[in-house]
Each structure stands twice: as C-alpha cells, then as structure tokens.
C-alpha cells in the first residue's frame, strides 16, 4: 500500500470483460469490476447486504437509464456502481464503493475508507 492508501489488485489483462473479480485485502473482500463496454472501472464491497453473501464480484454488470449497476447473482438485487445505492429494493441497504485507478496496465484500489486491519492479517501485493 502506498501512502495514499492505494493497494495493487491485479493486472488489467487478468480481468474478465464486463465482469468482476474478488480482491482480498486483509479480512476485507472487495469486488473489482472492468466494465469494458463503457471502458470504466469500479470497486465495491463483495458482500451483498440482502442475504449477506460474498457474491457481488460474480454478479452481472449492466445499466439502468445510463446508471452503471451490478446485479447480485443470488436474488438479482441491483446496486449502482457509482454510489452503491440499491436500485430495485428500497429496504435492502446500500454497498460501499472504492476508487479505482489504472497505471501502466496495473489496477489499484483505494482502501482509505476501510478501517486498518490487523497487521498480521494484512496481505500486501507489489506490482510486478
């Protein structure tokens, strides 16, 4: 992690197109998405708040009136990738989102908003 709280996630070429992967950061699970059709990157929590399943990274990407979204594979609750709001169930609650940057083919996620995990469980990855 650099001083501005960016962690290395993976190489852009490792990513599926129009889909997500799960990134481990200490005990946190972050879903990272490469929305190829929009040429956009997003990151959110991996946990779907509806039934508390670690599943959003396996969800399907799409848009609703232009708003990019991810649909949980379990019960198709959809969340805005921009602000984390649930788009089809008011009672469901929203998800955390994280900034993403691409540098020289490497993907970084900003984890400043996550409480610092115990140093013993912290796993850091350096760009190759």
């Amino acid at each position: 992690m650099d001083k501005n709280n960016w962690i290395y996630a993976c190489k852009a070429t490792d990513m599926p197109h129009n889909g997500g992967v799960c990134v481990q950061y200490g005990t946190e699970q972050i879903a990272l998405y490469y929305f190829t059709h929009r040429n956009e990157w997003y990151a959110t929590q991996n946990l779907c708040p509806h039934k508390k399943q670690m599943a959003l990274s396996r969800g399907m990407l799409g848009s609703q009136q232009g708003e990019p979204k991810v649909a949980c594979p379990f019960h198709k609750k959809t969340f805005s990738l921009k602000n984390g709001q649930c788009l089809n169930d008011e009672g469901c609650g929203s998800i955390k989102t994280y900034p993403v940057k691409v540098q020289g083919g490497n993907i970084f996620i900003n984890v400043a908003s996550i409480l610092t995990p115990h140093s013993s469980t912290l796993i850091e990855y350096e760009p190759q």
Partner: peptide
C-alpha cells in the same frame, strides 16, 4: 453479446437481456 448490443440495442445491457 456486445456485437448484438452495438447492432440492435442501447445502453450497456442488464441482468435481463444479457442471459
């Protein structure tokens, strides 16, 4: 899917039309 979306659709698809 992207070829179909670009030729016949609008937006970025969703969990209904993709499958």
């Amino acid at each position: 899917f992207d070829a179909v979306l670009d030729a016949l659709g609008t937006g970025d698809g969703c969990e209904v039309c993709r499958p």
